[in-house]
C-alpha cells in the first residue's frame, strides 16, 4: 500500500523564529515566575505562623544567591508583564469614554503605567515608614 506522505510543517521552536513571538513567550513565561513568587510568599506566611525562628529562617533563605537570582529574573519578566498589560489595556478594557468620545489609547496605557508607578511608590513608603 502506498504511504501517504503529507507535508507537516514542523512546529518545534516556532516562537524563536520571530521576535514578536519571542516577546509573547517572555510575557506568558512571566506567569511561571509569578506563580513561584506567590508560592514563596505562601511559604513565608506558613513560616510566620510557626513563630519568630521560622520567620527568620525564611528571611535567611531569601538572602541566598539562588533566591536573589530568581527574584531578579522575576522582577524583569513580571515587570515586562506589567508593561505589556497596560499596553494592551485599550483593547482589553471596557469601552472607556470621556464625555462622548472614546479615551485615546495612549491615555489608557499611560494611565496604567502611572498607576503602577504610583502604587509602587505607595507600597515602598508604607513598607519602609508606616
Amino acid at each position: 500500500m502506498a504511504q501517504v506522505r503529507a507535508y507537516v510543517r514542523p512546529m518545534a521552536g516556532w516562537w524563536r523564529r520571530n521576535p514578536y513571538f519571542v516577546r509573547y513567550m517572555i510575557r506568558e513565561g512571566s506567569s511561571v515566575f509569578l506563580a513561584i513568587y506567590a508560592v514563596i510568599l505562601l511559604a513565608g506566611l506558613f513560616r510566620l505562623a510557626q513563630g519568630p525562628a521560622a520567620w527568620d529562617a525564611w528571611r535567611a533563605a531569601l538572602a541566598s544567591p539562588v533566591s536573589l537570582v530568581f527574584h531578579w529574573l522575576a522582577l524583569l519578566t513580571v515587570g515586562y508583564h506589567a508593561y505589556t498589560w497596560w499596553k494592551v489595556a485599550p483593547k482589553t478594557a471596557p469601552d472607556l469614554r470621556w464625555g462622548n468620545r472614546p479615551l485615546p489609547e495612549l491615555v489608557i496605557t499611560a494611565g496604567g503605567w502611572a498607576a503602577t508607578i504610583g502604587a509602587s511608590v505607595l507600597v515602598y513608603v508604607l513598607v519602609r515608614w508606616l
Binding site: L41, A74, V78, W85, W86, T116, A119, S120
Partner: peptide
C-alpha cells in the same frame, strides 16, 4: 500583579 508585583518582588526578594 501589573500594579504591585514588581515592587513586591523588588522589596521582599531583593
Amino acid at each position: 500583579s501589573a500594579l504591585v508585583a514588581p515592587v513586591l518582588i523588588f522589596i521582599t526578594g531583593i
